[in-house]
Design a protein around this nucleic acid. Structure first.
Lengths: 201, 201
DNA sequence: TAAAGTAGTAATCAATTACTTACTTTGTAG
DNA sequence: CTACAAAGTAAGTAATTGATTACTACTTTA
């Protein structure tokens, strides 16, 4: 597919390969993506991949770093908003938008997390989600200080729930077989989350 | 290794095989569980499995039916409680308890859902989760009628969020590498969910 | 424009996979 | 006690996997 010219410079080829994996993950179980499938999708031979990545694991690690950079990058924009609760909403919607654009990403994250082996890719995911959770928890604590978030809310649990809410939406989209469902249900889901953490009006 | 005697009757062997898969899924990516690993875990040769299941897919379908029966069975106990909100809490805790006893189960469900092929196992999961969601939605609507659940809550979104909350806890346990974390965080997570759906006091 | 370096090919590798087949052991009904 | 069907074994199969290698084609540059 992707009728680029052949003979790309190495860094461009690496980037193209990473994006091919992200694209394929939208339609396939990530752990079932073969190097042959990746190469075919780019109009290359399978061996060519190993000119640019020492192993499949290394390729998947690069994909995870691609994800971490893009996702956290979008999230960070809103971290310093005046109202923590408004910031959480914007982050939620930005995350949802990212997932709708790249439906393969949440599958890859979850799939990588549950691997038994301690691969570099898995570690990259762990680091990313931990960083994400920390930012959420900080935001929630700041919300408490400002009186926006109820004092009795467990910030750690609320951070977990934030990510779980998105995971639930992803699961629904897998059930329905349509990514659009996520965009449609996201506001309703966040509304409940918001009621769950905000202080009584 | 489960040192049963050899030469089990067919139905007992089938049950033992299903349970072996559930056990293995607690430590491995379900889509990476091989028939050889299953057989080894039972002290059998690999070929013996195919005396009891026509294919690996059929075995996984049997596993999903095992899960559906057990999980929905536990949930159903509480469906007809007087207070829908109390019923939701009991169901949540029962589900959490089930997941702690069988940590491989949520991995298998999610893993099966994201497969591209339309396997019987995948369909079994879809049916199970849909049924689950419907029961939650019914309970939430009943809660609205009784004034326990806020009228503005989207029951469908709330059902999605209920399942997503558990999925978030599972994700945290994968991050931390400990299942116990789920039991510890479950009450805090549900407290937020409860605040999210209940009507203002 | 010739030489040097880079990117991609095609064939092949060993390992692993789900599944099959021919044979042996075991429990049990008559 | 003994036939015999059920349960398990051992040794295969064909297909697929990630990775390697000797070679070719393209691009850049001196």
């Amino acid at each position: 597919m992707s009728s680029q010219r052949k003979h790309l410079p190495a860094d461009e080829r690496r980037a193209a390969t990473v994006e091919a994996v992200v694209k394929l993950a939208a339609e396939q179980n990530p752990s079932e993506i073969t190097t042959l499938a990746i190469a075919k999708h780019m109009g290359l031979t399978q061996g060519a991949l190993f000119r640019h990545f020492p192993s499949k694991d290394a390729l998947f690690e690069a994909v995870m770093e691609w994800v971490a950079k893009r996702l956290l990058g979008r999230i960070d924009q809103y971290a310093s908003s005046a109202s923590p609760l408004a910031a959480l909403e914007k982050m939620f919607m930005a995350h949802v938008e990212f997932v709708c654009e790249h439906p393969g990403v949440p599958r890859m994250l979850f799939g990588e997390l549950q691997r038994a082996a301690d691969t570099p890719a898995k570690r990259a995911v762990q680091i990313m989600i931990r960083r994400y959770s920390e930012r959420l928890a900080t935001l929630l604590e700041r919300g408490k200080a400002l009186g926006e978030v109820a004092a009795e809310v467990d910030a750690s649990a609320a951070a977990t729930l934030f990510i779980g809410t998105i995971q639930g939406l992803v699961m629904q989209s897998l059930l329905a077989g349509s990514v659009e469902r996520i965009r449609a249900e996201a506001p309703g889901a966040f509304a409940i989350y918001r009621r769950g953490v905000r202080s009584a009006p």
